[in-house]
């Protein structure tokens, strides 16, 4: 059969190959991707290497406050003589971790909830989306703040209880119990838009012949939804997930900045910018460097997200 085909027949390209090609044509998107890779490796590989080299983010050196760049401290030191660079990298770990994990959670919840609502449809599907609409009408930031306050003391108590029973590191548990509530609160109300997007795709896919065929073959609903429909919904999901990460980085930093998010001894880009704002006059570098890294990351994710939209969904890319 295949030998009958002419040798010079063009190889068919898949949607994904096409999209990758279009994405790599987009210089801004490629630049964004490179910046993201750079910042992630700096925070998650460079940071630990600096720790190994003996640079401690919490080591105070009061004889060396607000010092300028030197061979020992590439970006200088802060108000307590701590190395600024390692603090930015460590803060980045927390900011990025929260944003990426919260995005993973919202994507998972959104796929399951929106997928079921779209696939089942009818009255149940409509009711499910009514609930989403109602929650979307709430002011996001206020709900997140209240919810975080509500769970944070409980998470800490639970963590300390567990520490007493298993041999966990008490310090780490206390640090983690500051991060976890913020992550949960953002994810708990961040999945709404994702579920709407998934629901729209799922509802239109559920009408198509291949789903009908799968159903008539007697496949289980779960298999139809996750094996047959999900791959066809990945485009919008990936685009929106990429744009969700920077918005979560922004929310984390906003909440930390107003003192309702990450707190010492933890640090994130939000808390670093807050400290920088306090020492604006004494050492402007303390706000310049964290803000620069922070804004660069947001730029990169937004450019990549826009590029992905143009690449994966050429119809939506009007301009």
């Amino acid at each position: 059969m295949s030998s009958a085909l002419p040798a010079n027949l063009e190889k068919g390209t898949s949607l994904w190959k096409d999209a990758r090609h279009r994405l790599f044509q987009n210089k801004l998107a490629v630049l964004g991707l490179l910046v993201i890779i750079f910042i992630f490796s700096a925070c998650f590989i460079g940071g630990p290497i600096m720790h190994k080299m003996g640079i401690d983010p919490n080591k105070q050196d009061l004889s060396n406050q607000f010092s300028g760049p030197s061979s020992g401290h590439l970006l200088g030191t802060d108000q307590l003589g701590r190395d600024l660079l390692i603090r930015i990298l460590d803060g980045g770990q927390i900011s990025l971790l929260i944003a990426v994990l919260a995005t993973c959670l919202t994507v998972s919840i959104g796929i399951v909830y929106g997928g079921i609502a779209g696939y089942v449809g009818g009255r149940l599907g409509n009711t499910m989306m009514r609930i989403v609409d109602g929650l979307l009408a709430m002011p996001f930031i206020i709900i997140v703040i209240l919810f975080r306050e509500l769970i944070s003391a409980r998470v800490e108590i639970a963590g300390l209880y567990l520490t007493d029973h298993w041999d966990w590191n008490r310090d780490l548990v206390i640090r983690f119990s500051n991060i976890l509530p913020l992550l949960i609160a953002i994810a708990a109300f961040g999945w709404l838009t994702m579920s709407r997007i998934v629901r729209t795709s799922a509802a239109s896919l559920a009408q198509q012949e291949f789903v009908e065929a799968a159903r008539s073959l007697g496949l289980s609903h779960r298999r139809i939804l996750f094996r047959h429909m999900l791959p066809n919904m990945l485009g919008p999901i990936i685009i929106y997930a990429t744009l969700t990460i920077p918005s979560f980085i922004l929310y984390e930093a906003t909440l930390s900045f107003i003192g309702l998010g990450i707190e010492p001894p933890n640090s994130s880009w939000g808390t670093l910018i807050k400290e920088g704002a306090n020492f604006l006059e004494t050492k402007p570098a303390m706000i310049y460097y964290p803000s620069l890294v922070f804004s660069m990351t947001l730029f990169a994710f937004n450019f990549l997200g826009d590029g992905l939209r143009d690449a994966l969904d050429p119809k939506a890319a009007k301009d």
Partner: peptide, 14 residues
């Protein structure tokens, strides 16, 4: 969008 108020505000002050 990428330079939020808590960055822009202090910079304008400075």
């Amino acid at each position: 969008i990428c330079v939020p108020a808590f960055v822009l505000g202090p910079l304008l002050q400075l």
